[in-house]
Design a binder for these strands. Structure first.
Lengths: 229, 229
DNA sequence: GGACATAAAGTTGTATGCAATGCTTCTCGA
DNA sequence: TCGAGAAGCATTGCATACAACTTTATGTCC
């Protein structure tokens, strides 16, 4: 792993943490001396982040962390509604027993955490959910589809999404997982695709709904970022 | 425009021309001394080409021009069948008269060239067709959708595709354009999306069809696979 | 007081040199 | 003759220095 790779990861993490807030500039020299590296690997990392859509390059002015608008979020969901069902449509005839078992395990763990319902569990559920989707993408066996999804499903959106679910919505989401597994185990791609479509549209509804008041207190910056239009 | 931008364009063009054949290595130093530039801007251009999927980076071995397999082509069409209809679905309620006029002009020019039917015309039709699709993408007004399509619809595939059309298929394609314009002018997104889906599937069929009969001798197994669907 | 011009500072863009890494080839030994 | 190891070579990875460009601030002139 090269230095540029590490820098790429570090900057990405910092953007997610809010350490580099949306709209702020990421200076090559600043990070360079902080990480004790020259500007060269930082430049390369920033270029990758630009092409991945995390920051935007302003000519002769630096790399600015992109600010997500409501419209951006809607755009992403519009594309996910198309692409994620395609993932399971492809996965259905290709998936093997081993993968199905893994999905089953993940679903079970998520359901268990869903019962407790505290805030730490929600974060853990989000992680497991990411692994669930990653398993599906792997089963779809389409490098381009995988790359497209990685490009658009940026974690700033999906990460906090579970916190916006009501209890019943969370339950519904768990049901989707189970139904997906059933459809996939029967090799029924269209069934699976329909469930996935509902799954994404449910996430979209929760995401686009105005947040509860506590969200504002807990993470005002993020909320503003998401709601700015 | 920076030197790196120019190098990016130059290399891309050369890949399209076949000047850099698939599987060959693009050396930083070689291009550098040829264009009388240092390796730095060439490096940057190559990185962008890697992230755009034109070349692949082999660690410590250089940048290799990607070789397209039949499977890659199928993957791309599978995604285009999803994304391109979405373009016109979005465009339908957003398109304005000016854009419709432009589309009409393009369609007319293509039809005129279609009549002559010689080989030079086919190239010209391909160019006009690209502009036609570009107009639609612009009307869709979705930067992410645009970027996704630019990423996957790489010219190596779409460029020669018209040469594979029979005369009647070419005529069919022109009909699609007209029908698209009608649907869009009425604001009927689903109609437009259906036409576009047929348009892409027709292109796919022509593309995946064995070229001139030599394909059969060369790779009979492949042909069977292609005709199964 | 305002506007324009000039200069200075800060940032990215490029060149060059050196270090590190992986592969190939040649040689030596069994 | 075959295999293993070491050396050399080619290439990328990184650091540093310099150039070009843009913005901003300040001073002067109207």
């Amino acid at each position: 792993m090269t230095a540029a790779d590490r820098v790429y990861q570090i900057i990405k993490t910092r953007i997610l943490n809010g350490q580099y807030p949306a709209g702020s500039y990421v200076r090559e020299a600043t990070i360079g001396q902080e990480l004790e590296l020259s500007r060269t690997p930082i430049r390369e990392a920033l270029r990758r982040l630009v092409s991945d859509g995390w920051v935007e390059a302003i000519p002769h002015h630096g790399a600015r962390v992109v600010a997500w608008t409501q419209r951006d979020v809607e755009e992403v969901f519009e594309l996910r509604v198309l692409l994620e069902p395609q993932v399971v449509r492809r996965a259905a005839p290709r998936i093997n027993a081993e993968c199905l078992t893994a999905l089953d395990d993940l679903a079970e763990q998520m359901e268990a955490l869903c019962e407790s319902g505290d805030d730490a569990s929600v974060d853990e559920i989000a992680q497991l959910n990411n692994r669930f989707h990653a398993e599906l993408v792997a089963a779809a066996d389409s490098p381009r589809l995988q790359r497209l999804l990685e490009t658009i499903v940026q974690i700033p959106v999906s990460r906090r999404s579970f916190h916006r679910y009501t209890r019943s919505e969370l339950h519904c989401s768990m049901q989707h997982h189970r139904e997906l597994i059933r459809a996939l185990s029967l090799g029924d791609g269209e069934w699976a695709a329909s469930v996935m479509r509902a799954h994404i549209l449910a996430a979209r509804a929760a995401q686009l709904r105005p947040a509860a008041g506590d969200e504002e207190a807990r993470e005002p910056a993020l909320r503003r970022r998401l709601h700015r239009a």
